[in-house]
Design a protein around this nucleic acid. Structure first.
Length: 268
DNA sequence: CCTATAGCCTGACGGC
DNA sequence: TGCCGTCAGGCTATAG
């Protein structure tokens, strides 16, 4: 699930639960999640520290420790966080488990182990090293920035929206949702979108992401006009009832309504 | 610069 | 019920 809205909800969750508590113990159940640091070192470095504040850049969560360093969390395709008390309630697939002095626990859950956890000195340096583009909900990500980034871009619009090096935060599901709301086919060439189309797309991007965050990134709570809850094989368009179609874009499955978003660039 | 593919992992689901 | 193929909200490396 973790695209920008999901990760933003994780941030709010951490803000409301796990901050300002001394870390007592850290268990690592899978090394696969840790690339740059050993489980042994992660445990010793975190012990006796506390989580003090949380930032998000794209799909990454950056959690600052009381010594100034940063715990970086990425969630792959299936990651999530859970804060709980009794170990009897320990969730399945928790790859890292932090125990706090107050008796509560924070679990980093990742059934498919495609996520990533790191410990870094500087948040900005991490973002730069990953070559991430600006966060699409960042304060300085205005319409000019959006159109500048896309001008001269040669490929398809869905690929561009999902390119984390270009702009950070949007993934497969929300790129589909944004393009659905705009009535743009996912394979549309960026160069075929005029300036006013880009302005409208930018506005829709903001609206979709903010709506998702406001509804807790829970598709069941999304407006009836949203694609996401219908986004599966055999699903139908919430606006016109047409059966949704699936095409590959950037190696991912893109769902769209052929009635509202057209049949695609090649045929007319 | 951009696309397609495979791989990393593992679970869920549909068909036989 | 069991087995098998396909697919899954991410990202990277590789080849064209």
């Amino acid at each position: 699930m973790p695209e920008l809205p999901d990760v933003q909800v994780f941030k709010q969750y951490l803000d409301a639960t796990a901050l300002h508590q001394k870390i007592q113990d850290v268990e690592v159940h899978s090394e696969r999640i840790l690339e740059e640091i050993s489980s042994q070192r992660l445990a010793t470095e975190l012990k006796a520290r506390s989580l003090e504040s949380v930032r998000r850049h794209g799909k990454y969560l950056l959690v600052q420790l009381d010594d100034g360093r940063w715990l970086v969390l990425h969630f792959g395709m299936t990651g999530e966080l859970k804060y709980f008390k009794d170990l009897e309630r320990e969730p399945e697939y928790d790859q890292v488990l932090i125990a706090f002095a107050n008796g509560y626990h924070l679990a980093y859950i990742a059934p498919r182990k495609l996520g990533e956890i790191e410990l870094v000195d500087e948040a900005e340096a991490f973002v730069a090293a990953k070559d991430l583009g600006p966060d699409v909900l960042g304060g300085d990500f205005d319409l000019d920035t959006f159109t500048d980034l896309l001008s001269g871009r040669r490929g398809m619009i869905k690929s561009a929206l999902m390119d984390q090096q270009l702009m950070a935060g949007i993934g497969n599901v929300y790129s589909d949702e944004i393009l659905f709301q705009e009535g743009i086919h996912p394979r549309t060439a960026v160069k075929d979108l005029a300036g006013d189309a880009l302005a409208s797309l930018y506005a829709t991007m903001n609206e979709v992401l903010h709506t998702a965050i406001d509804r807790g990134a829970d598709p069941d709570e999304y407006p009836d006009s949203y694609l996401t809850p219908h986004r599966h094989q055999g699903g139908t368009c919430p606006r016109c009832g047409e059966e949704l179609q699936r095409v590959k874009v950037a190696g991912r499955s893109a769902y769209f309504c052929p009635n509202r978003q057209g049949a695609g660039p090649q045929d007319r």
